[in-house]
Design a protein around this nucleic acid. Sequence first.
RNA 1: GGCCCGUUCGUCUAGGGGUUAGGACGCCAGGUUUUCAUCCUGGUAGCACGGGUUCGAAUCCCGUACGGGCUACCA
Length: 505
Amino acid sequence: MSVRVRFAPSPTGPLHIGGVRTALYNYLLAKQQGGAFILRIEDTDQKRLVPGAEDYIKQSLEWLGLTPDEGPGYGGEHGPYRQSERKDLYAKYAEQMVADGNAYYAFDTPEELDKMRKDQEALGHHSAKYDARIRLQMRNSLTLDQEEADKLIAEGKGIIRLKMPADEDVSFVDLVREKVTFNTDQLDDKVILKADGMPTYHLANIVDDHLMEITHVIRGEEWLSSTAHHVLMYRFLGWEAPKFTHLPLILKPTGKGKLSKRDGAKFGFAVFPMEWYDKKEEVTYAGFKESGYDPKALLNFLVLLGWNPGNDEELMSIERMTELFSLDKIVKSGARFDVDKSKWFNQQYLMSTPDAHLLPPVKAIKPEGLVVEDAYLTKVIGLMKERVHHYGDFYTEGSYFFSAPTEYDDKQIKKRFKPEIVPHLEVIKAMVSTHSGDPSAMSTAVKGYLSDKELKMGVYLPLLRIMICGRLTGPDLFDIIVALGAEETSSRMVKASEYFNATLS
RNA sequence: GGCCCGUUCGUCUAGGGGUUAGGACGCCAGGUUUUCAUCCUGGUAGCACGGGUUCGAAUCCCGUACGGGCUACCA
């Protein structure tokens, strides 16, 4: 049987970075095994549905290169892939479980449930569950007489709850954690079919996984505690359960708890693949895409957050990850999100990618109003890529490639500037014009002149750099000058000389 | 509170009875460079704690502490 995995997000908001990693692991297993990667939209909670969220999820997956083989809009033999469109499928399985005595109808109102919980709280029971101890005190098809129950069911007032067997150890194998066991006495009678006729996650999930012939369930650790319910339902329905793998959570960079959407702003990085505007909160959440990350670097960073190939390889293409991936190498404990390391991965990606390939994404993030030719931008990319971390840095760190400096590093100038150097700078300016197309000739000429006159390179070159760039960091000075051209360079030198003379002499 | 899962440098991790506990990011120092970055060399720093098993424990067992998840007609 060929491997079929699914990524099953709920369209209640943007795709979280943890979700991206879950999608990635699913994708890698599918590709490695020659199987199918399925996108399923779990929109059974109509109240929490957010318009645009599904599109956002799909666009994010596309941007990341994790294109589903099947899913809404992607075709496939097991559709529809949106649970709201599968609504009518679920009830019969819930009813079958009722008929078999493994589930029952319940008629309690939200107020009654609330009262039960409060009463139990008063008796000293924390977070009371609707379970074997409670169910016979509530209004359901177990306690009401048949006629009354049938009437309520006919009126559509019933929901369906799973009936947990008494005192039974339910074990299942988690591919990461090995054997995990829950006792049914600790488990509640979960609602599986809601009043609006929609299934809850638990029912929809196992029905769809079965119908879509899913072989491996790879999901976040937050589902580990309800897996026993799922295993029981597979058994009640006489179905074979898929293999389970629960992924450790991604934690905040510092402090307690899992990474949340607000941590992005708090720590100054993105927690979503792409920018997302939250209409309710009227806030825009930053995206990795807009922050200047390349999806390949992001994925490389994420794949190592909770998994390793078993050797020292860190820099991997998607193809390489696919080759090396294995579920049993997934780590058990939660991983903190390390912004510094994510930056390093992006820089590594930049350095190892041909300049021309970098052009489109760099252009895509170009500041408004800036006009620059492809050939020139490509040149700048080549000169700058090993000293930046994100796509946007080409414009900020390399601002002097696009416009003359508007301010100069006064501290550095004062350290070196003396009036008597001015004539020498004039000579250098002339050399720049003579060798405007050849950085090495220019370099030789200027350095030759300096050494002939016994002038210090450590004084003149930095000063020259400040005149042209305004600051003391950047690529080889002569490469910059050649890129800028003789005319622009001369004009910057004139402008800078005026500034030096006016403010320093 | 209950149940479940976890705990190796600051961070991501390798190692699963005998290792000088390895790598990567970060940080620090040195080299290269006009500068920054890259690159190279070196350094810093870790087995949560307490018992037990064993000739021997980071590794196996128990307990404690700490962290995490779940505990909805949410996923």
